[in-house]
Amino acid sequence: MATLTDNDIPLSELLGDGGQPPIFPEPPNGGGGGDPDGHRPPPGNSRSAAVIGIFVMMCASTMTFSALVSAMIVRRGLNRTDWHHIPLPSILWWNTLILLVSSVALDTARRQLRKGNRTTFNRLWTAGAVMGTWFLIGQIIAWYQLEAGGFRLVGNLNSAFFYVLTWAHAAHVIGALGAVLYVEYRALQFKLGPSGRTWVDVSAIFWHFLDLLWLGLMALFVFWA
């Protein structure tokens, strides 16, 4: 029967329970990375990394929407005889306006926070969050109106693309609204420190991106659909 030599490591020690250093060692700082000497902040807390990250994420979202929009344009070009025009519900224009105003509110709030006007920030940020929620409610109303008009997901490719694109946009808005509400919660708890301000900037940038995306989609619906 084989016996353990100095070079043998029992399985338990693979996980670091023995006297020897473990093969799977514990990472420094509990796994969060960071410089043990304290010269640099731990990764992930860097403000510019967060801003770069959100821009890269916007590229990913742009690719998803580009794929959906190009599919719509290509399909429309293949055969126009079965491509039925859908009347856009007028509430979509109001939704567009609300989204744009919410973006202005969030951005003004962000600037006020930089100046140290926390009360104004809280008011404007809350207004932005409420308008963002209104936008989503308005989108739901638009979907109901379209469905009531006989334009459903099934049976008309044009309306199917409309639903998919607006759902995808709404999913993004829900995600962004989550971030906006998180900032709101932190602000009302008086816990909006420096890292919270990164959240403010990042969520405002993404909100503006959703504006642009929505304007592009509206142009598509008006001119191509």
Partner: peptide, 14 residues
């Protein structure tokens, strides 16, 4: 991260 001289990835939780 080792070759970049970084302390880790930019977003560890992600």
């Amino acid at each position: 991260p080792e070759q970049l001289g970084a302390t880790g990835m930019a977003f560890p939780r992600l």
